[in-house]
Design a protein around this nucleic acid. Structure first.
Lengths: 229, 229
DNA sequence: TCAAAAGTGTTGCCAATACACCCATGA
DNA sequence: TCATGGGTGTATTGGCAACACTTTTGA
């Protein structure tokens, strides 16, 4: 018991890397801080963990405070705990990353909190060690999306195969062969053809698919090798 | 600044899943607690993070306190933060896993601290959420060892290919084809034949290899697909 | 009727598997 | 000289990459 009394009490923060996809580029939701320290600079959305709150719930709360969204794909990335990472006071941050579907939601709440979407190649410099967090989160998304079907989290409920391909190309930063991609994705049997067509197109309308959610959950830990890393 | 004052202070612990390989089975180093709470029960080696210590350094210190070892392969697994996980006081634990080479060291220090090596299938029930930590760590080691050459960390500096194969078989729990395994491992060009033979063998002596450390570090993030997951 | 994007088919190659055979060693 | 385990070779196969052609649509 003594040991608990002797333990140094340390602040525990949570920060969230929030990724989205606008159909073209992979994006990151950042906030312009209107509070000290580092007021006016860009950072990830974060906050302190409450005493009566599980870690995961803390991350959900913080995500919800900015976006208003629930039921979002959310994973713990890792904890960042260098002594000098927070200039104010010793603080450990548990970093999460979220994948959200931009296209089905407006982001009035986020805007009202000084939140803006940035393309990854336009990302401003961030406070503290948030640049490291983002770098690590991108690496993790690439790693994970190559083996597990997490990409769908970034798309609307109904999406076309070419849209899914553009997403993969955005994540990995290079072009893929249309025909091989389609075959590979369909071979997972995770997609259901809704029979509907994408009317946004000005040329041949692509078929709209949806996730087979049952297979998605049951096969999530199967390895699909969507990409060769 | 106010926010820092308002933040709930929380204990921050570190726990280590320490894996070893005895040539036959994958093993886990556990300690029998001689202090409260849960005195007399088995747990992972752990401790509290100090105020002036980076997370990673805290993990190194805790690992060293039990084993006396430095320069060990150590990775952060994830943080565990359920409200009820520690019955004494709200405590977040950042869990690390270590891979160490059992065969080149005695473990007198560990023994003196009530540390014992367990085969995974003989693992006793552990305190708090340490069972979850171990489960997650094993999954992570399997995941990672399938793609990255971390297995070598568990072996002596010089090792035979059959020994490496037994390690992989222990990690994944099934038998592999000797000939295909050898070809696959050698094709990575990560191994250097020392020219020496393993004299422990009672039949044909296998060649001793060592890691090409330069290639190992430079190609660590290459993907070798040692196993089909 | 033309340009642009979607959908499907074919071929060749490489890499993983499933095998068989030979060699070295100590009992 | 025999049992045990180590080392190497080869045929087959299945999956992936590279490629060409057809279809649909709006302008």
């Amino acid at each position: 018991m003594n040991q608990y009394l002797q333990a140094d009490k340390i602040n525990l923060a949570i920060d969230c890397c929030i990724f989205g996809f606008d159909g073209e580029n992979l994006k990151l939701l950042l906030i312009k801080r209107n509070f000290e320290p580092e007021q006016g600079k860009w950072s990830l959305m974060g906050g302190f963990l409450k005493r009566d709150e599980d870690l995961e719930n803390g991350a959900k709360r913080i995500l919800n405070e900015l976006t208003g969204l629930d039921n979002v794909y959310l994973e713990q990335l890792q904890s960042f705990g260098n002594v000098t990472r927070d200039p104010v006071e010793r603080t450990i941050s548990v970093c999460f990353y979220a994948l959200i579907n931009i296209q089905d939601h407006d982001f009035e709440l986020a805007k009202s909190k000084n939140g803006y979407w940035f393309s990854l190649d336009e990302k401003p410099n961030l406070i503290f060690d948030h640049n490291d967090m983002v770098e690590k989160a991108i690496a993790e998304v690439r790693y994970k999306a190559a083996l597990h079907p997490i990409g769908f989290e970034l798309l609307p409920d109904k999406f076309t195969i070419p849209a899914l391909q553009r997403l993969y190309e955005a994540i990995y930063g290079y072009k893929l062969d249309r025909r091989n991609f389609s075959r590979k994705i369909l071979s997972t049997k995770l997609l259901i053809d809704t029979g509907e067509k994408d009317n946004n197109s000005t040329t041949k309308k692509a078929s709209l698919f949806k996730l087979d959610t049952e297979k998605y959950t049951s096969q999530f830990n199967a390895f699909h090798y969507f990409m060769n890393l």
